[in-house]
Design a protein around this nucleic acid. Structure first.
Lengths: 153, 153
DNA sequence: TAGACACTCTGTAGTAGGTTCAGGGTCAAG
DNA sequence: CTTGACCCTGAACCTACTACAGAGTGTCTA
């Protein structure tokens, strides 16, 4: 019989909040674990490994949906891993695009900042004036993260 | 008497969804506009200008809270614009940090991808193996966007 | 045996910045 | 008088968690 641990121990070991583990269970990324007499969750090594897998993927900024896909591929060892490659390539594509957007953004912010090197009264502030009148370049918000929803053309 | 337009016209002009305009009003970024007899919102040029200002700021990935601050500075022309500069500098700092994080992430993803140039059965997939065993480097999620919450050390 | 304290349980609500939907009202044209 | 385009409010949904509230469990000490 292998060693089991309860949720707090698992959380400490992997440096993840307890609530996150329960959340992943609710979301179907982790299976429902065994329970103790007192209804505490009991985890063994396979759950621990699975959670580690998930955390690695999250550290690489994949969405839970992407991770679900990877887990299902991992659970089907007879299938090829071409899908894994495809998913990863697409994810890398997202990241690349986001880097480009951030670079553009950075340039623009720097140029905006240059409008006001010498502090003055805010009614004469070059930055505020620029913000009021600069053309709006519609772009996907960087704040949306790596996985931007497509809004608009 | 200046020309007025209703929400759909304003939305079309500035290429923003109607719902977003109403949302900004709820959030207090836009003032409550005049209403027609039929209870339709009626906008004039000053609201339009204010909305443009907000959209420019959003295009630069500022949060609504940052924009609220900028708007209040804009509304107080007697105050200095040192605060504007400070806000912008901090925002640029966020963006810079995020760019760095994205570059690290990109490197890591590329290296992971290199584990499986030749598709094989998924049970032998180098990527899946790597994801299961690689050390977890805790980092702020890039998906949190430019404005990351600080979670954990 | 009782109390203190740490741990766990479920369920709900909040976060940012919107988007989508249901169920209705308004207005001009045909 | 009906069609269709527009508008209204209020609430639910999205991601990936996080933060409670209120209750039960388990262990240690007095």
């Amino acid at each position: 019989m292998t060693e089991t641990f309860q949720i707090g121990q698992l959380a400490t070991k992997l440096a993840v909040p307890v609530e996150t583990i329960r959340y992943y269970e609710r979301e179907g990324l982790l299976p429902k674990p065994a329970r103790s007499n007192g209804n505490y969750r009991l985890y063994a090594d396979n759950e621990r490994t699975r959670l580690e897998f998930i955390l690695h993927c999250r550290a690489l900024d994949m969405t839970l949906q992407e991770i679900r896909t990877l887990l299902s591929l991992r659970d089907a060892p007879e299938k090829g891993c071409a899908e894994v490659n495809a998913l990863l390539d697409e994810h890398i594509g997202h990241v690349t695009e986001r880097m480009r957007a951030l670079r553009r953004l950075h340039t623009e912010l720097k140029s905006l900042r240059a409008h006001c090197e010498v502090p003055s009264a805010s009614k004469d502030c070059g930055i505020l004036q620029e913000l009021a009148s600069a053309p709006i370049k519609r772009r996907k918000s960087v704040a949306a993260g790596v996985h931007a929803a497509n809004r608009g053309s």
